[in-house]
Design a protein around this nucleic acid. Structure first.
Ligand code: FES
Ligand code: FES
Lengths: 146, 146
DNA sequence: TAATATTATATCAAGTTAGTAGGATTAATA
DNA sequence: TATTAATCCTACTAACTTGATATAATATTA
């Protein structure tokens, strides 16, 4: 399961993306209220996203948050990895957080590893295409034809 | 990530499957030693699998565990669901453990839900084909052609 | 300089995970 | 029938994770 922290992050980024045309930073207070996210909890999340170059923060009076990159260059893979860590279901098949499986003797002979590699690849493929741009464009609504 | 409990379950079932030709129940002690699983911890897992009709247990002196069904009728979906619960990454897209998303107002208008449905479907498809029969048959080794 | 925003650190309750302990129950066999 | 050897059951624990809250410091600007 995706954590609430991660889901809040996605919703916050989507909110900022939808309101970035206003050419001003968005307050954490505004996001917290509109998206029903506990304010202090959200602040930590936004700081984390800034530390990973997803957001830019502006301190002081008229401060707030803006996107660090175009919406087409932020996807769900990156957000999930920042907030929840590995997407893979086994340590040994994680690309960004690899660790050997303690319970398995040999990766080469492991019969279940192949299955988890398949799951990882299809999952990453879907999340890679899920950019903030596509998520906000309503493009996915129904099929293209008909 | 898949829990250790779940991984132990998979390994235990695979072990029983590989040794079931001996026409005798397999002891938990044997599985624990050969697969390096803490014995008492394993006992709880095996009991759980029995309660969910994956294994049959025989009590008393020459007791032990056997598979409740042919290996072709046990797949990773079922095992993971028993041990770890939902496979889906959001409550609202889980088939067996559905719950509404607290953070989302409307499932219909939720832009990220569609993505998680895709992930769920491809993941379930892969795990459904990962039966104990196929995992033990070395069939997945390399490609069929070439 | 006052107001308002982010930043930072510490803390906390509840839940989950991975295991351990100790014994009760059941069944074969000597 | 007593012993042995297996599963079964309940309770407990330490460490970690999750979802938050509290308090105060720092930066910007009107
Ligand atoms: S080596 Fe990672 S699942 Fe076996
Ligand atoms: S309704 Fe479940 S992800 Fe939005």
């Amino acid at each position: 399961m995706i954590s609430k922290r991660c889901k809040y992050a996605i919703k916050a980024i989507l909110y900022i993306a939808r309101h970035q045309d206003q050419k001003r930073p968005i307050f954490s207070t505004e996001i917290a209220e509109k998206e029903s996210i506990p304010k202090k909890f959200l602040e930590g999340i936004l700081r984390d996203l800034r530390n990973h170059s997803i957001l830019i923060s502006q301190r002081g009076r008229n401060g707030g948050y803006t996107l660090h990159r175009p919406t087409s260059e932020i996807n769900l893979i990156e957000i999930i990895r920042i907030m929840d860590g590995p997407i893979a279901l086994q340590p040994c098949v994680s690309l960004k957080y690899y660790a050997p499986c303690e319970e398995c003797i040999s990766e080469k002979d492991c019969v279940i590893r192949k299955v988890f590699i398949q799951v990882r690849d299809t999952t990453l493929d879907i999340f890679k295409n899920a950019t903030i741009e596509r998520l906000t464009s309503d493009y996915g609504e129904g099929n293209t034809a008909e």
